[in-house]
């Protein structure tokens, strides 16, 4: 019944945003200021509509689960917020260290891939192909249990960040390589013709343009990196995911725990994605 209501609204709106019929108030009955009013009305209506849809969905799910006999106990989980916060800080540390390191390493490997020195480009190609075709979890396990046994001094955190960085850098390298290759040959020629060195040309002409073009792909990869940091749990790094597993064994409230964990991850990744979108819009506007 509810679904039918939404469906009809979608059709009447010409396939645009789905509006529940009961929310389509008669805005713009007069002709004057019809358009602006419609815009404002549409926007807030859309927000309300989405809010209602999700409230209804979550509420329905909640009752479904409760009717099946599950006892929700959020207060019990919320007691452990300090533990969550501590784990989130570790996740943030892992993500930000790896983010910087992987971007730098990835850029260098990407540049090496395009080098005219064949030894350099071949090495970079092999690096990228090997790292991209092994699961990240295997890389982390191999580093910690393999190399970690031979060199016992560095902590699990170190091996984890190293594995994450090496892996993500191989993806970033391909993004950077693509971005540089997409810059027109004429830009290189102009820089060469002005007598610029390779470094100056890359630093001032090619890379600034390449980075503008790859911001969407790059930030997408960086969000992936932040989420992939959860794999460090397999070597005992007490970040968000492992922490939630630990709290699960204390509270036995799996649903509540993982709802919390999801909220924490979302709170880390969503601003990253939004910031990326903002950056992209700002830079591209300045270009035109």
């Amino acid at each position: 019944m509810l679904g039918l209501l939404f469906f009809e609204a979608r059709v009447k709106n010409g396939g645009g945003m789905a509006f529940p019929l009961f929310l389509r108030l008669p805005w713009g009955c007069g002709n004057m200021e019809k358009k602006t009013w419609k815009k404002v009305g549409n926007l807030s209506l859309r927000a309300i509509a989405v809010a209602i849809i999700f409230t209804v969905a979550i509420w329905g799910l909640y009752y479904l689960i409760q009717n099946a006999g599950y006892r929700f106990d959020f207060p019990r989980v919320i007691r452990y917020l300090p533990a969550f916060n501590k784990a989130m800080i570790l996740t943030l540390v892992i993500a930000s260290v790896s983010l910087v390191a992987a971007t730098v390493l990835g850029t260098l490997v990407g540049l090496a891939r395009l080098s005219s020195i064949t030894v350099l480009s071949d090495t970079a190609t092999v690096y990228v192909q090997v790292l991209r075709n092994i699961p990240l979890m295997v890389i982390i396990l191999a580093l910690y249990f393999g190399l970690g046994a031979v060199f016992p001094k560095p902590s699990a955190l170190f091996w984890g960040i190293l594995g994450l960085t090496l892996y993500e850098a191989s993806y970033i390298a391909e993004i950077v390589r693509g971005g540089i290759a997409a810059i027109h040959k004429e830009q290189r020629e102009s820089a060469d013709a002005l007598g610029m060195s390779y470094y100056t040309k890359m630093r001032h002409i090619i890379l600034p343009q390449a980075f503008r073009n790859i911001i969407p792909a790059l930030t997408g990869q960086l969000v992936m990196l932040a989420k992939d940091s959860s794999l460090l749990m397999v070597i005992g790094v007490m970040e968000l995911t492992l922490q939630s597993r630990y709290l699960l064994s204390v509270t036995f409230q799996a649903l509540e725990i993982y709802v919390m964990t999801s909220i924490y991850y979302f709170a880390i990744c969503f601003p990253l994605a939004m910031g990326a979108q903002y950056l992209e819009r700002r830079l591209s506007l300045e270009d035109r």
Binding site: Q187, I205, P208
Partner: peptide, 8 residues
């Protein structure tokens, strides 16, 4: 011919 200024 195509100016080739640096667009950024």
């Amino acid at each position: 011919q195509n100016y080739n200024l640096f667009p950024h």
